[in-house]
Nucleic acid binder design. Sequence first.
DNA 1: TGCCAATACTTGTATATACATATATTGTTT
DNA 2: AAACAATATATGTATATACAAGTATTGGCA
Lengths: 158, 158
Amino acid sequence: MTTFSIFVPMRLENDIKQKKFETEQEKAAINILFTASWIESSNLRRLKPHGITPQQFNVLRILRGSHPKKLMLFDIASRMIDKNSNATRLVEKLRANNLVTREQCPDNRRQVDITITQKGLDLLSEIDKETDNWLTTFKNLTVIEFKSLNTLLDKLRG
Amino acid sequence: MTTFSIFVPMRLENDIKQKKFETEQEKAAINILFTASWIESSNLRRLKPHGITPQQFNVLRILRGSHPKKLMLFDIASRMIDKNSNATRLVEKLRANNLVTREQCPDNRRQVDITITQKGLDLLSEIDKETDNWLTTFKNLTVIEFKSLNTLLDKLRG
DNA sequence: TGCCAATACTTGTATATACATATATTGTTT
DNA sequence: AAACAATATATGTATATACAAGTATTGGCA
């Protein structure tokens, strides 16, 4: 007969110095928030040298995804990770840096059409070069585990 | 022979209207950020009627955890989910609402000792009453699945 | 046609956050 | 003891965010 010695890491409890959680459910909520905060600051640091914020980066990627088709502000907002952030002012920042163009839609003058510029595309591909490197930040899971994580998160919000 | 028709939900792709992700790893990063944002806004909405923000709530819970032992600001900061937020000003908000007390530590006058007040404890227990209700927001996973989620997140940051 | 609601965005304001820098106090070294 | 480093917190400033309220334009309908 063999006895296995199992190492239970208690990572989260350690990271936020909390003794224990009432339920796995509660721990999961905190765990997601903590992990998100961890990813966000890592993301912030890697984008800072390029002069854009994570949200601006997110919007640029959305625009590249539809390029060369224009997107109206509403489309951008509905694709954004943080639905509550202010698309108008965010896009204005990008325009001020010539990363996107804004133009009133002729068909419907309420709409504003946004397009990513060549400068915006160049910036993204420059950042892309470093992305593999950044993604190694979390290489601790196997593909199967990443899939499982995605399934669980999707189901959680389901 | 039987053919199974499998429904693949593609929840995240739907939520942010993105076609597909390059890798499961990249999807996981976005998925965590999106899920965190989803939890945060839900949390924001439930706490708003009580006049505190999620970060303030978090700090109050930390203080209740150590009550009646005092904590210095540094201890609070190291237990916080978002390490970067400004503990000084956060605690000052709580003090202004008489939810905590601040006093200079006599042994080491650099330190500031923080204690949760009775009013703070009362507020927490009032919110606690609604918490079960709030947690039903994400009751979509079984306990086993929550455990698995926690393990994966811990390992991710590992 | 004129009115009203809906749509698409913009702006104001209060609060929060990131990051750099400053202050006060204590510990350490020579 | 004087000088310097380390610790613990505070503050200044620029930017971001949440939420409410505002403006411009369009669509529908009596």
